[in-house]
Each structure stands twice: as structure tokens, then as C-alpha cells.
Design a binder for these strands. Structure first.
Lengths: 340, 340
DNA sequence: AATATGAACGCAAACGCTTGCGCAACAAGG
DNA sequence: CCTTGTTGCGCAAGCGTTTGCGTTCATATT
């Protein structure tokens, strides 16, 4: 029914091995024969069975990409870019969406990628155990989130610098009560929220502003979480006049909360985010832009490079992409002290 | 180096076939032996090679999902939900991101999914040729976009009804000059823009409003496109007082354009979108909500069902999910005629 | 003219699993 | 005690490739 390599071989009057070599551009086949085989294969609509070829060769020409949540803009965008690079290079991508704890557990215990992929790009931060599981696959590993991990190539941004530019911007505008909406520094070994928090604290200290713990709230890196967090911040006795949200999605949640409280941005409260989300511009959000797609593409490229030239390649590589503060309409100097 | 089925067999003192049967829950193995084998396999950290097993069995336990653009909210969300269903059922998903024409062409000519997947979920609308290519795979097919296609299970929404509720809402508010930002009705055999346009025209006709072709603009289903389109609409001699955008992303682009023109929404112009994008709420966009994730999950489920009970299953099935208009803050009655 | 050299190609053995079939062993039925 | 079934398991033949090695034959080397 479905045409196999021997069918092509027969039709072309050669052996299967020659067909294999011809189609993959391997030496040992004369140009005429190769052309003939190519023609026959095309005419028969032949495509090599990936299962068979990877079984025989050990290479799968497949990359595993694991993400915490495909629907989220950041991950979707990284994935998008990475996929393009991979598929252009002839690799397929196997997607693992590990949003729920069950899915995550299932993935790391069964490790379905074993013997199925040539490399894996992880967009979630594995804990020690998970990290070890991935390393046990014996394939190149990369990530675009969080800090360095042994065995991983990581491409990221300078979280400190980004945060500093954002918070400093608020300070320079004259704000003194600057809140922060952060991400859970939960059990995940995710350095980003920590880095950003430290940078936030440092800038405050630098500016001689005393840090008020009541001005920090957890936004869970989601829109809803951001909304909740902002609501909390609004409830403290002396609410902030400006807020730094560690992600644009949380910042947007904050905007929503502010709108619900009939507070005007930036008149009553300034908001600055982080990411330069696709829609940040639509809502006029001042934010720290990071090249999200580029990070995905770059990580993919680094992975491919390791596949091409195995051996000497240093297993761990660190790449930092540029960030920049983009000023829009959600930040302004604090209002002169007036009625709440 | 990596443990194979024969290693397990040897360690358990049985044959490879018994191991295979035991691990996959096939009959013909006593419970004691099965337990023993399971234990040994776990202890050795054995995972069956997918390549080998699919080569031998013909089943791949993999689903191909092809999307036009993973980064876009709608597709990301559908994919997210579908992936969860698939992976919970033990299937892996192979992702094909066909945004660029080259990628698309490459995919449909090389058809890398051939012999690699048990089914495919297409989130893009294939043209006749592409559709035929997919059918030639001989596996169940499904989609969540556009209308009926032979050989496809389609789960979608009632585009007409959705559009009608949106446009009628504007009419009821008293608008007479109602613009539309649509999608390219280009070469893609995508019925959605057409359905929505027809419904728009019908509602206008129903309301006795004469249709003005100048009030239609192409927004390409992107934010930028929406912005361009809105800008065009603003440039006509008598601009619309309300706009129906066929997608929330275009609607948001429109909002941006309006803001740039210093026009207030809904005071100067009302805007209604379609989708109920994750961030529609943040910008207060009135829109037609459709259950995006549900559609992905449902399509996945239908596909799995066809895999479970092959044969009798009708190859084509149509499912319609509910829609509803959600009123927010971008729509209001037109301002009484005043200075532009 | 005899030999060495390579290029072009075929042979056959993997790769790691699944599965139809056969064969014990043991239970039940006559 | 001899059939007739069952049940539990091993044998071995694939599944469709890739690849090391061998063979053939034309060309270059002495």
C-alpha cells in the first residue's frame, strides 16, 4: 500500500542501499543514478519512514520542546521561533505541554522523549531531579528561561539590568512608594523572580528609599494574579504611587484592577511591566522589552550547532540578549500630594 | 548502553515477547510474571523505543498538529488544550508551525508526517491540494477552523450567529455607519471571513442600512493589520461611528489606531471584536466570546475516538460550540451629531 | 600488459520492537 | 486414561531503514 524503499529500488533498477544513499545525498552514487532515483522516488511519492530510519541510524531528527504553558504569549512566541529554526533545518518538533502538575509528573517519570529526540529545548525550569532526568537522556539541552544549569545551554537576558532600568525610571520620575508585583518564588528553581526582586531592592536602596514589604505582592505571572496583586497593593494603608510588575501580563492585570478601582493610569498610579508583550503597545504599557522570539531562535540554533559538531562543543553556553526600556503611557511623575 | 527489551527479558528470565506483552497489558501473561517484569523494567529504567515499536506495529502514538502561527493567541490556546487531551491519552504531539509560505510548502510537499502520526489536527485551512495531501495520509483528520471539508471532523462555532449578535448590538445602540475590519479572503479556503462578512451584510440589510463598501477594510487578522484598517476607515469622508472587527486582535489594533488619532472609545467610536481574547477584558473590549480551548479539547477527543473505534465511525463530523456576546466598555450609543 | 586504485553499487546484518504461530503443561470432560 | 480445551510462554519472521564490507569494473600507474 504505502511505498517503501524497496519499491523505489525495484522501480529504479537498483538496490535499496543505493536508493538510501542517493536520496540522502551520501557519496558512492553516480550523479546519473542519483538523478534517476530522485525522479522515481518523486514520481512514486516516496517518503522514508522516520521510524525505520531512526531505528537504523539512531538519529531521530526530532527535537523535544517542553513548555509550561503553550497558550501564554511568552512561551508561544519562543516556541514559534524555535520551531521555525528547527523545521528549516529538517527537524521535527515534539511538543510537551506541562502545565498541570500531573502532566509534568507523567512527563518526567515516563520520559517519553527517551530514544525519540536528538535534543531538548526546555522552556520550563526543571528542579534538580527533573534536570537530572533530562541529562540522563544524553542529548544536548537548552533553555531560554532562568539561570545557568549544569548541562544546559541557556540563552536569556539580563534580568538585573532590565529591572534596574524599569525601577530607576520610576525613581527618576520622582516616585518614592514603588510597589512590585512579582512571581511566586515557589519550589520552582526559577531564578528570574529572585533576580528581579534583588535588582528592585537594590535600586530602592540606591535611591535611599526604605523598602516596605507591604508593597510587594505575588502575581503568579498571570493576568488574574496581577489583578489580585494590584488589588492587594491598593488595600495597604499608604498605597504605592507606582508599580513595577515583573511581567507584562501581570502589569495588564494590574491595569485592570486599577480601572476597576476607578484609578487613572498614569495619573494616579504609574505602571511598568516587563517583556514588551505583543499587546503592550495596545494598552500603552511602559515596559522592558526583551527579544522573545530571538531567544527561541537562538536557543534552537545553538542546539542545532551542537548536533552538527558533536564533541568539542562546550556543553554549557550562556548567551545574553539585549533589553531596553520602552516608554509608553503608563508612567508619569507622581501627582502632587492631593486628595486620594 | 541504553537498555533494550532483551535486557529486560534476560534480567527477568523470560523472552522478549513476554516482556512486550507484559508491559503493554496484553493478555497471555500470568499476573505474577507480569508483576515481576514490570518491577525489573522499572528498576532498569526501561522505556520502549518508539521508533522500533511503531516500525513493528504500524502505530505511532503520535498526533500531528499543524498550525499557521503558534504565537497567536487563538492557535496557542487551541493547541494547548488539544495537547493536554492527547498527552493524557498517551499520545505525543508533533508540532508543525506553518507561518511562512516556505514552511507551508515544505510541509505539504515533503509531508513529514507521513508514516509518523496516527492522526492530524489541522488548525489551518488547507486548500484543495493540501487537503488532498492530508487525506492521502490515510489517518483521521480534524480541524477547529473554517467550514466543512470532506474527510475532516470539524468543531467550530456559528460564525453567522456570532457576527449577528455583535453587529445587531451596534445597530441596537443606534449606529448606522458601521464599519467592518475583516480578514483577507485571499487564496485560503477559509470560510470564516466570508461567513462573518455575509452575516454583517445581512444584519445591515435587515436594519435597512445601506451598505457602504468604503466601510470595509482588511485587517489580516493581526493587531497591526487592525490598526492599519482602522486608520483607513478613519480616512474616509464619513467615517464609521462603530466598527465590528472579525477578531479581537484586529479590534485591539483598531483601539490603538483610535488612540493615536486621539479618538475616545466608545465616545467617538464603538468597537466590538470577536474571540474574547485573554486580554479583551483588560482593554475592556466588547466581543463575541467563543470557547477556544474547548474547541481544541473537543477536536482532540473526537480524533482519539476515531482512533479507538475505527471503522464504523463517520469520517466527517460537525460540532458547533456555543458563542455569546460579552458586553464591556468599548460600545455605546453614537454621540449626538457634533463637531468631528 | 599486468597491477594497483578508486568509484559505484549490491549484500546482508543490524536497529528494537510486535505478533502469528507452535508447543508445553495442566485442567476439565468423556 | 485419552481427548479436547485453556493458559502461558518462546520462536522467529517481519517492520523499513542504514551502513560496513565485498565485489565489479573502468581508469590510472608502472
Amino acid at each position: 500500500m504505502t511505498v517503501s524503499i524497496t519499491d523505489v529500488a525495484r522501480a529504479a533498477g537498483v538496490s535499496a542501499s543505493t536508493v538510501s544513499r542517493a536520496l540522502r545525498g551520501r557519496p558512492g552514487v553516480s550523479e546519473e543514478v542519483r538523478a534517476q532515483i530522485t525522479a522515481v522516488a518523486a514520481q512514486l511519492g516516496y517518503t522514508a519512514s522516520r521510524s525505520a530510519s531512526s531505528l537504523a541510524s539512531g538519529r531521530t531528527f526530532t527535537i523535544g520542546v517542553v513548555v509550561p504553558y503553550v497558550g501564554r504569549w511568552f512561551f508561544g512566541t519562543v516556541l514559534d521561533a524555535a520551531e521555525q529554526v528547527f523545521s528549516a533545518a529538517g527537524y521535527d518538533v515534539l511538543l510537551y505541554n506541562l502545565g498541570s502538575p500531573e502532566a509534568r509528573k507523567r512527563f518526567f517519570t515516563k520520559l517519553p522523549v527517551r530514544k525519540r529526540v536528538d535534543a531538548v529545548l526546555s522552556l520550563l525550569i526543571p528542579d534538580e531531579e527533573e534536570s537530572a532526568a533530562l541529562r540522563s537522556l544524553g542529548v544536548p539541552l537548552a533553555t531560554t528561561v532562568g539561570g545557568a544549569r549544569p548541562g544546559f545551554t541557556v540563552v536569556g537576558i539580563d534580568d538585573r539590568a532590565g529591572t534596574e532600568s524599569a525601577v530607576r525610571h520610576l525613581v527618576n520620575l520622582g516616585h518614592r512608594r514603588i510597589g512590585m508585583i512579582s512571581g511566586a518564588s515557589g519550589p520552582l528553581h526559577w531564578t528570574t523572580p529572585i533576580e528581579r526582586r534583588n535588582a528592585y531592592l537594590d535600586v530602592l536602596a540606591d535611591a535611599g528609599i526604605e523598602h516596605d514589604p507591604a508593597l510587594e505582592a505575588d502575581g503568579d505571572y498571570t493576568v488574574e494574579g496581577g489583578e489580585r496583586a494590584m488589588t492587594e497593593l491598593l488595600a495597604v494603608s499608604r498605597p504605592p504611587t507606582a508599580v513595577y510588575a515583573q511581567s507584562d501580563e501581570m502589569a495588564m492585570g494590574a491595569l485592570r484592577a486599577l480601572r476597576r478601582h476607578r484609578l487613572r493610569v498614569p495619573d494616579h498610579v504609574s505602571v511598568v511591566g516587563f517583556d514588551d508583550h505583543e499587546l503592550a503597545d495596545v494598552v500603552g504599557l511602559t515596559t522592558v522589552a526583551q527579544p522573545v522570539a530571538d531567544q527561541g531562535a537562538e536557543a534552537a540554533r545553538l542546539l542545532l550547532r551542537q548536533l552538527d559538531e558533536p564533541g568539542a562543543e562546550p556543553p554549557t553556553e550562556q548567551v545574553q540578549m539585549p533589553i531596553r526600556l520602552v516608554l509608553r503611557e503608563t508612567t508619569a511623575p507622581p501627582r502632587p500630594r492631593g486628595p486620594q
